[in-house]
Design a protein around this nucleic acid. Structure first.
Lengths: 94, 94
DNA sequence: TCGATAATTAGACAGTTGGCTAATTAGACA
DNA sequence: TGTCTAATTAGCCAACTGTCTAATTATCGA
């Protein structure tokens, strides 16, 4: 869970996820959308993969990345649980 | 939004939020639940406050912290939007 | 097999994070 | 005012992050 929120905390990575929400894209297509070197982009892909927010597959010379929504849903679940507990709280204060 | 996800990426801070989901607690009460120095805890409170995930009020010598669920809901919103876009995607691949 | 292309890995470096101890601030109360 | 308690701020340090350039790996096509 640490890795998921950490991955989400960078604006470049959130934008990558946005782009992938429309469907698979290659590393190059994604990198073209940012004013950043390809190795830096590659690093962001690795962080997102480590958090399992994205998956990848190779097709010839290209690597296709896609969004992994189940992990994103886990993150939603954690925060929602927090909010729900809060709304159902009974004051235990003394 | 950066600050919110960054704040959520630390397990100590997520546990603080959990504890606060049951209602207001003082800095001291919270700090007692962790095997960590009070200044370190104070640092975590500051990170959470900066992200506006918690609010604080002073009552005499004590500072009472409470969960701010609206910002947590904003975070849920961002991730949910991502998942929804994804489920409604039409393949734009060429 | 050679050269071109797509992408990652390696290594450097400045800035940030998360922990600590010591010092300081703020309030309560005799 | 003086002292005790609650909490934060200051300052230090090792580890981590995000960026870059240079080097490497993997694949394609002639």
């Amino acid at each position: 869970m640490d890795n998921v929120f950490k991955a989400l905390s960078d604006p470049t990575r959130r934008q990558i996820l946005r782009l992938l929400s429309r469907g698979e894209k290659t590393a190059g297509e994604l990198a073209d959308q940012f004013d950043m070197s390809k190795p830096s982009m590659s690093h962001h892909f690795a962080v997102l993969k480590d958090a399992e927010l994205i998956s990848s597959r190779r097709d010839g010379q290209q690597i296709w990345y896609s969004l992994n929504t189940t992990v994103a849903q886990d993150a939603i679940g954690w925060v929602m649980d927090l909010v729900e507990r809060s709304s159902g709280k009974r004051s235990k204060r003394k």
